[in-house]
């Protein structure tokens, strides 16, 4: 179910055609999807507060309606370990076109995955799970299912990946919590059903998955050209 607050996020982003990361994360959080703490830093004075709240190391990304692909414009910084370093990053981001602030969150460790959705012309909303996160375009190791999906279908998706050992574990390495991954994918798949007609596609990329969390490290929601509220 979409609430008024969720509709408001979509409507305010309509002209832009996509929802910026902090708002996309807020939308998902309102839907009940677990989002780790983050800060939207808009001024110098907020830099220190954010660092104190979130701890180090931190990842920071530019917030700008003009920037869909943040890494292309140098709008991503990771491994930030001091207030000074975070301040430097903030000052650098200020110069990026359309700067509206800096999205800051704690660095997560784990396996990089991509979770996404597109509204297919023939089948409606589908969800995608892939290995590789930012390097997914190289491996193209992905599984697609028609939404909504069940826990069993999440298990099938993982089984069908060539790199499934990265999720299920090998040689005693880190294993991803299937319970967490299932919970995320199942509720994500219900969310995209509710957003059918509003969205064109969603990328949660990367999702950092580990034994005790699936952290949505980046989120982008592309809105449908002809969507209605």
């Amino acid at each position: 179910m979409l609430t008024d607050a969720m509709h408001a996020i979509i409507e305010s982003s309509r002209d832009m055609g996509w929802i910026m990361e902090p708002e996309a994360k807020r939308l998902m959080s309102l839907y009940g999807i677990e989002i780790p703490p983050y800060a939207w830093v808009r001024s110098h004075t907020e830099v220190k507060t954010a660092a104190e709240q979130l701890g180090f190391p931190l990842a920071a990304k530019v917030v700008s309606p003009k920037v869909v692909h943040k890494s292309d414009v140098g709008g991503v910084a990771v491994g930030i370990d001091s207030v000074e370093a975070l301040t430097e990053v903030f000052e650098r981001f200020c110069k990026i076109d359309g700067f509206l602030g800096m999205h800051v969150e704690a660095m997560a460790r784990g396996v990089e995955l991509i979770i996404g959705s597109v509204v297919d012309a023939q089948f409606g909303p589908v969800v995608l799970l892939g290995i590789g996160g930012t390097s997914v375009e190289i491996y193209k190791d992905t599984a697609v299912r028609m939404a909504p999906i069940t826990e069993k279908e999440v298990a099938d998706m993982v089984d069908s990946l060539k790199g499934r050992a990265l999720i299920q574990g090998y040689r005693g390495g880190t294993v991803v919590s299937m319970e967490r991954l299932s919970r995320l994918l199942v509720s994500f798949s219900h969310m995209v059903m509710d957003l059918e007609g509003q969205i064109a596609s969603i990328d949660l990329n990367p999702v950092i998955a580990s034994e005790n969390a699936c952290v949505i490290a980046d989120a982008r929601i592309m809105l449908a050209a002809d969507g209605k509220a």
Partner: peptide, 24 residues
Amino acid sequence: TRAVSSHTASLAGDYAVFSQVMAQ
């Protein structure tokens, strides 16, 4: 025919979706 403004859209091509949804 989709715009490929997102990773997911470029990865979930028409046939990939068709084939996997049939199997599902």
